Amino acid sequence: CHSECLGNCSQPDDPTKCVACRNFYLDGRCVETCPPPYYHFQDWRCVNFSFCQDLHHKCKNSRRQGCHQYVIHNNKCIPECPSGYTMNSSNLLCTPCLGPCPKVCHLLEGEKTIDSVTSAQELRGCTVINGSLIINIRGGNNLAAELEANLGLIEEISGYLKIRRSYALVSLSFFRKLRLIRGETLEIGNYSFYALDNQNLRQLWDWSKHNLTITQGKLFFHYNPKLCLSEIHKMEEVSGTKGRQERNDIALKTNGDQASCENELLKFSYIRTSFDKILLRWEPYWPPDFRDLLGFMLFYKEAPYQNVTEFDGQDACGSNSWTVVDIDPPLRSNDPKSQNHPGWLMRGLKPWTQYAIFVKTLVTFSDERRTYGAKSDIIYVQTDATNPSVPLDPISVSNSSSQIILKWKPPSDPNGNITHYLVFWERQAEDSELFELDYCLKGLKLPSRTWSPPFESEDSQKHNQSEYEDSAGECCSCPKTDSQILKELEESSFRKTFEDYLHNVVFVPRKT
Rank of each mutant, 00 (worst) to 15 (best):
D315Y: 06
Y305A: 15
Q121A: 06
Y167C: 14
F311L: 07
I379S: 07
D326F: 03
P284A: 14
L180E: 11
L331S: 11
L349Q: 01
V324T: 08
W205G: 05
G256S: 08
L294G: 14
N334A: 07
K267E: 02
F175E: 00
L279D: 02
V308H: 00
K253H: 12
F193I: 11
S239T: 08
N340P: 07
A251I: 07
Q199P: 08
Y355F: 12
I327F: 04
L201T: 02
S239M: 15
K177R: 10
T113W: 12
V238C: 15
N248S: 11
T386A: 07
A195G: 12
V104T: 09
T215W: 01
R202V: 12
V324A: 10
E122S: 15
V170E: 10
S171P: 00
T118D: 08
L293F: 09
L201C: 03
L178S: 00
K277F: 11
R369C: 09
Y223T: 14
E237N: 14
Y305K: 03
S338Q: 09
D393M: 13
L212V: 13
G131T: 02
D335G: 04
F174L: 09
E184I: 10
N320C: 09
L331K: 11
R179H: 15
D384S: 07
L212P: 03
E262R: 09
E302I: 07
L147N: 02
K253G: 11
P304R: 14
W352Q: 15
P388F: 05
D384C: 05
W205A: 02
G189L: 15
G139N: 11
G313F: 03
D292C: 09
P411D: 03
L212E: 00
D335H: 11
A144Y: 05
S171L: 01
W282K: 00
S402F: 10
P388W: 07
D384A: 14
G313N: 14
D206P: 10
I163A: 02
G373H: 02
D312V: 06
T241H: 09
T273L: 04
E122K: 02
A259K: 13
E302R: 04
K277Q: 15
K209P: 04
K350Y: 15
L147M: 13
V324Y: 11
D367S: 09
R176L: 04
Y372R: 13
L280Q: 00
L153H: 08
A251F: 08
L108G: 12
L331I: 12
N150V: 03
N263A: 12
L293N: 07
A251R: 06
S173H: 13
L204K: 01
S389N: 08
D326V: 02
G313K: 15
N141K: 12
A144D: 03
S166A: 10
I157E: 00
L392C: 09
P388T: 14
E264V: 02
D328M: 09
L147R: 01
R179E: 09
R244L: 13
E187T: 08
Q403T: 04
S230T: 07
M346A: 05
I278Q: 00
C126L: 00
Y167K: 15
T185S: 12
T127I: 05
K242F: 08
K267Y: 15
C261R: 03
P411N: 01
Q382N: 13
L294T: 09
S389L: 09
D377F: 03
N150I: 11
L279I: 05
L219M: 12
G243E: 11
K226L: 06
E368S: 12
C317Y: 06
Y300S: 06
D292A: 04
R332P: 09
W322N: 02
L107A: 09
S158Q: 08
G152C: 10
K162L: 12
P342K: 03
A259E: 04
R291D: 13
K360M: 04
T353I: 14
Q339F: 13
E368K: 14
Y160M: 14
K103G: 15
I271K: 14
Y270T: 07
I327Q: 02
L294F: 07
E246L: 08
Q216I: 05
E122C: 05
G295M: 15
Y372K: 11
V128K: 05
I271D: 00
G217D: 00
N307F: 09
V170L: 10
T383P: 00
Q199D: 15
A168K: 01
H106G: 05
S319C: 10
K337F: 13
L107V: 09
T241E: 06
N263E: 15
T213G: 11
R176V: 12
I188L: 10
N141H: 12
S116Y: 04
